[in-house]
Nucleic acid binder design. Structure first.
Length: 514
RNA sequence: GACCCGGUAGCUCAGCUGGAAGAGCAACUGACUUUUAAUCAGUAGGUCGUGGGUUCGAGCCCCACCCGGGUCACCA
């Protein structure tokens, strides 16, 4: 039976499909068509029928419009001299009805060569079956692509009253769903919807910033020095230059060089790369949106973030709520603003500014906060805040005015030299935005870099490098600037109610197969 | 990185105290011209994640490893 060893190795199911392919070719049917021109989609076919029906415009035999549709077979019920099937395209699904005395003997016999997950085109008038489903009475059909590997469709039961879909069996294995995202998408319409939403969110973020007068720019992914965030980079090598290169961990320093150059409102949507662990909210490559606006400070940027979030909710979601798992969180402006130090003081019941580093450390140890080695005052405050306050930040909240040590690229707070003008915006306990009044004093910036360098020498491999070229740019003069970074993946998680970042990234990072 | 759970037919899973590898769906053959988790009859399909070990005998027990999920840690 089998032509060769390769075919021998295939499972029974795959072998049967190869055999059908052979039969198709023997009958002179093209199994992988070159093109097809539908006149309608599955969704439009149904809508059109319903419109004609309610206008009492149906033709003889209750037939609606004659359509030609293309799609993938997702269900098949063989009744002998008639067959019911379901077809899906990018817009929905529609039922097909094949009758032997309508399509003819030869065409009907050829149906036995079709399988679930094949792509076909079908042509005929619409009607409503006895059980009430709008269906295409197929008069002719054509094979578009023979599928040699069945998709793991489950059995779908649709409740006739509520329209709720219940899936039996199906494709559950998370690993396989991520590795074979094409199959996951093919089988799960709701997964396709998540990524459609993601795309629309990014479109609306662009539209919002474009309308605010921002210019979209592109800056290097491959960088001789990395900076703009505290993170471990991916390291690579350029052979011709014989030079070590890093994949960017942030866009920040390049975008601010553009502000120096007079491009006064810029943004970039980019993949950033951080060589760190994986979690429900961390993928090593992720999508970042950063923007910088001359003649603004972090207060202005808080207003802009509020307007941006509302714009995305209004245009994409149609409602001002965020979903975290099953929780529905209303989004209203202005968002809550909480000083990092004052919020922590409240949680501790004493003024953090009055506490010594030793006091802070004792508190942290008392609470079993891990990894305190080498933590300075700022780090201790941050850790305590993370432990005591952050988990409660479910409604949209700006956490503002971080300790200076934690923020080497932010301006010193105009009213308190111990703090910086910075905010992080949290929703549902996750950080989504991070912003500052950008530090534009080149002398101060060099000192901050040097402090980072000291941390680096002390073993902190996430501390930032000194970027002399960036300081040179600041010496030419950067106007007062507010800048914001946003985790696009995390925002999409919030909007689509996904609890894992992997469910909003089409191809999340996985270990190699085998 | 630590701990917990998992990996058995194409898919979803069961498999008792160690004693002849199972079910449903999918597939294949046949019946059925308005079904919709179609139905009915029959057939076939297995490297039990991998490699060792214990045992008369291992899907099951032991050791190591691989892969994934979850929790924690790391990650502003």
């Amino acid at each position: 039976m089998s032509e060769n060893e390769t075919t021998d190795d295939l499972s029974q199911v795959l072998r049967h499909r190869r055999e059908k392919l052979d039969s198709i070719i023997e009958r002179g049917i093209q199994p992988f068509a070159y093109n097809f021109t539908p006149t309608s989609t599955t969704a439009a076919t149904i809508t059109s029928f319903e419109v004609m029906e309610s206008a009492e415009a149906l033709g003889e035999n209750g037939h609606g419009e004659r359509v030609t549709v293309g799609g993938r077979i997702v269900g098949w019920r063989d009744m002998g001299r008639s067959v019911f099937a379901h077809m899906e395209d990018g817009h929905g699904r529609v039922q097909l009805y094949f009758r032997k005395n309508v399509i003819g003997e030869e065409s009907f016999e050829s149906l036995s060569l079709l399988d679930v997950s094949d792509w076909i085109g079908a042509e005929g008038p619409t009607f409503r079956t006895r059980t009430g489903e709008v269906t295409i009475q197929v008069e002719s059909w054509t094979l578009l692509t023979k599928s040699l590997r069945p998709l793991p469709f489950g059995k779908v039961e649709t409740d006739p009253e509520t329209g709720e879909r219940k899936v039996y069996g199906g494709f559950q294995d998370q690993e396989m769903r991520y590795r074979q995202r094409y199959a996951d998408l093919a089988v799960h319409p709701d997964v396709r919807d998540v990524f459609r939403t993601r795309s629309r969110v990014i479109t609306e973020l662009r539209r919002f910033l474009d309308d605010e007068g921002f210019l979209e720019v592109e800056t290097p992914v491959l960088q001789p020095l990395y900076g703009g965030a505290s993170a471990k980079p991916f390291v690579t090598h350029h052979h011709f230059l014989d030079q070590t290169m890093y994949l960017r961990i942030a866009d920040e320093l390049y975008l601010k060089r553009l502000i120096v150059g007079g491009l006064d409102r810029v943004y970039e949507i980019s993949k950033d790369f951080r060589n760190e662990g994986l979690s429900k909210v961390h993928n090593p490559e992720f999508t970042m949106l950063e923007w910088y606006q001359a003649f603004s400070d972090y207060e202005d940027q808080m207003d802009l973030v509020e307007r941006m979030v509302l714009h995305v909710l209004d245009t994409v979601m149609g409602e001002r709520v965020i979903r975290v798992g099953d929780d529905v969180i209303p989004v209203t402006v202005p968002f809550r603003r909480l000083g990092l130090v004052s919020g922590l003081s409240e949680a501790l019941g004493e003024d953090v500014h009055e506490m010594s580093e030793a006091d802070l450390r004792a508190k942290a140890e008392e609470l079993d906060v891990p990894d305190l080695d080498g933590a300075g005052r700022g780090k201790l405050i941050d850790k305590l805040f993370g432990e005591l306050v952050e988990p409660g930040l479910v409604e949209p909240t700006f956490v503002i005015d971080h300790p200076k040590e934690l923020s080497p690229l932010a301006k010193t707070h105009r009213n308190d030299p111990r703090l910086t003008e910075r905010f992080e915006m949290y929703i549902g306990g996750a950080e989504i935005f991070n912003a500052f009044s950008e530090l534009n004093d080149p002398i101060d910036q060099r000192e901050r870099f040097e402090a980072q360098s000291t941390l680096r020498d002390a073993g902190d491999d996430e501390a930032q490098q000194i970027d002399d070229d960036y300081i040179r740019a600041l010496e030419y003069g950067m106007p007062p600037t507010g800048g914001v970074g946003m985790g696009v993946d995390r925002l999409v998680m919030m909007l689509t109610g996904q609890t894992s970042i992997r469910d909003v990234i089409l191809f999340p990072i996985l270990r190699n197969e085998e």
